[in-house]
Amino acid sequence: MGRWRPSWLDALLALAVAGAGVVEAYGRAGPGQGQVHQPALVAAGALGAGLILLPRRRFPVGTLLALTGLSALLRVTVMDNDYPLAAWQFYSNLILVHTVGSQPAGPRARAGGILAVLAAYALLQTLPGQDLAESLIGAIFMGVAYGSGILLRHQTARTVQMAEQAALAAAAERTRIARELHDVISHNVSLMTLQTGGVRMLLGADPARERERDLLRGVERAGRDTVEELRLLLGVLRDVPAPSLLDRLDALAAPLRAAGLDVRVVTTGPPRPLPPALVLSAFRVVQEALTNTVKHARAPGAEVRIEFAPGALVVEVSDEGRASGSAGDASGGSGAGHGLVGMRERAALHGGTLRAGHRPGGGYAVTATFPFSAGS
């Protein structure tokens, strides 16, 4: 797995939570009612929460559970009736609940996320001073945080889908233009060739015009050769469908093999026609995983397994890497590669799931499952 770095937004949120917690701890320190009796411990908790927020997008459920554990520790050691809840605890919970809701995941992972959210909310209800109004306010804010995360996830999926549809539309438009270009140029060059032949015939058999006839024959040959080349380069688009997934993978694997990575493509199950959008998503998952294998894994080989299961297309990319980084990882930032987040988005776009992790025997594996819709 490649070297992970938090984003600037993650760092900014972590700094805000930690800074606000330290200010709150020492700004309200004192022995009286509503004051912080142990500011050093509360400030340490705020710093810990800030650190927990850094990998929130990489481990959304894990970071929420870690924050819940930290809150439970503070509940036992620090919180009392005089100072029941630090503000940064509530803010950091809202941030992580939103993050859990926004992450693309399969049914099991989403169920785990909901349980983590409920656990965080339940812990807050054990703090001193909670009444019905406080419980309802907490439920409303955490519900809004989780719901806004779900809306963000759906919007991201729609954006990815629109981008893929735009790419397919652009490819179709380029094909249409190429066909029209073929028709126009072939027609005009053929007409020029025929007219040239007509001029040559008009010259007759006069020996004094032999040079002119030779030049016109050359123009005719060039015209016919041009039409033939256009037919081969552009006219073939009329009869060739969009490349299949296996054709795309063969074209992808060839330069990687030339670069020294032994890429093996294995298929199981009877192949079947796939929707263009699904083909593009599956291909991008394989492309991203293989690219990161080359960049990070130092692997001698990788295997791409395409399984046409009865109800789904299963795509697995596994490598034999010996380094800490491997097929599935990328920063997830901007650029050509979308990393694990992008691959999960592509799988979730079709109602599928993606798993990634180290293999027991060494190396790394990325497995994406794309369910077949009723019309697929």
Rank of each mutant, 00 (worst) to 15 (best):
G2S: 08
P6M: 10
L9V: 15
L9C: 05
D10I: 00
L13S: 07
L15F: 10
G19I: 08
G19L: 06
G21L: 08
V23I: 13
E24V: 02
A25R: 01
G32N: 10
Q33P: 13
V36P: 07
Q38K: 10
Q38Y: 09
V42R: 00
A44N: 06
G45P: 11
G45C: 12
L47I: 15
G48K: 02
G50I: 04
T63C: 14
T63I: 04
L65G: 06
L67N: 11
S71G: 09
L73D: 11
R75Q: 10
T77K: 03
D82L: 07
P84N: 12
P84S: 14
L85W: 02
L85E: 09
A86R: 07
Q89D: 09
F90T: 09
S92C: 14
I95S: 02
L96E: 07
L96R: 03
H98R: 15
T99S: 02
S102M: 15
P104W: 13
P104G: 14
L115Y: 11
A116W: 01
L118I: 11
A120P: 08
A120G: 09
L127V: 10
P128S: 12
P128Y: 12
Q130C: 01
E134G: 14
S135H: 09
L136Y: 03
L136G: 00
I140N: 03
I140K: 10
F141P: 01
M142R: 00
A145S: 10
H154M: 06
E164V: 14
A167N: 07
A172T: 10
E173H: 15
I177K: 02
H182P: 00
I185H: 06
N188T: 09
G198C: 06
M201R: 13
L202F: 08
G204H: 10
A205L: 12
P207L: 07
P207D: 01
P207M: 12
A208M: 03
E210M: 06
E212C: 04
E212G: 00
R213D: 09
G218K: 05
A222F: 08
G223P: 05
T226L: 15
E229F: 05
L233Q: 14
R238H: 15
V240F: 00
S244A: 12
D250Y: 02
P255N: 02
L256A: 11
A259K: 14
A259L: 09
D262M: 08
V265T: 11
V265S: 04
R272F: 11
L274Y: 06
P276K: 02
A277N: 05
A277H: 06
V285H: 13
L290T: 08
T293W: 04
T293V: 14
T293K: 02
H296M: 01
H296P: 01
R298V: 11
A299H: 04
V304A: 03
R305C: 00
R305F: 00
E307P: 03
F308L: 01
E316T: 15
V317P: 04
V317K: 00
D319V: 10
G321E: 06
G321N: 07
S324K: 04
S324D: 11
S326N: 14
S326W: 05
G328R: 02
S331M: 04
G332W: 00
L340N: 08
V341G: 02
V341T: 10
G342W: 07
R346Y: 07
R346F: 05
A348Y: 13
H350A: 15
R355M: 07
A356N: 13
R359T: 13
G362C: 08
Y364K: 05
F370C: 13
P371D: 12
F372A: 04
A374R: 13
G375E: 15
